[in-house]
């Protein structure tokens, strides 16, 4: 559990760094960072990293960002984009790449497909957040 907490802190710090890189500032930056931390905690608090944890992470990021955007009257992207970075399956793509370069084609295909599935899980999580949580937060009003 303590390792998950540590990782959640790292996730929050990563979100803050990328928020700064994308020109987010002030209290919005703190909120984005917090969303990154909480999402990691909820996604990985229940066990090992799976496709489910990617989907849950993206759903939490997207859902909390909808609330934050409504509350702060800012575009949702301000909160989603910095916080989602840690869930991008970069390490799987890297493993797949190295396997292919070393001639381990089956392993490369396997990790490559897992990476594609992980990206899909991410997309599903974000899509669910937009499709379900957004109308709950805003009623029928679509934007902002």
């Amino acid at each position: 559990m303590s390792t998950v907490l540590g990782e959640a802190v790292l996730s929050a710090l990563t979100a803050a760094s990328f928020g700064l890189l994308y020109q987010v500032s002030g209290s919005n930056l703190l909120i984005a960072s917090g969303i990154g931390g909480v999402a990691w905690l909820l996604a990985h608090g229940m066990g090992n990293a799976t496709l489910l944890s990617d989907a849950v992470g993206a759903l939490v990021v997207g859902g909390l960002a909808e609330f934050a955007a409504h509350w702060r009257r800012e575009p949702v992207s301000v909160f989603v984009v910095p916080a989602i970075i840690v869930f991008v399956p970069g390490y799987l793509v890297y493993q797949s790449m190295v396997a292919f370069l070393k001639g381990h084609f089956v392993a490369g295909l396997q990790t490559g497909l897992t990476a594609i599935m992980a990206a899909g899980a991410l997309g599903i999580g974000l899509a669910l957040a937009t499709a379900i949580i957004r109308p709950l937060v805003r009623g029928r009003q679509w934007l902002h």
Binding site: F18, L21, Y22, V76, S77, V80, V81, I84, I85, V88, G90, Y94, A119, L122, G123, L126, A127, T130
Partner: peptide, 15 residues
């Protein structure tokens, strides 16, 4: 490499 990730494009595409 993650610094280069097209994170905004992916989120915007979904939305």
């Amino acid at each position: 490499v993650m610094v280069l990730t097209p994170g905004l494009l992916m989120t915007t595409a979904v939305r």
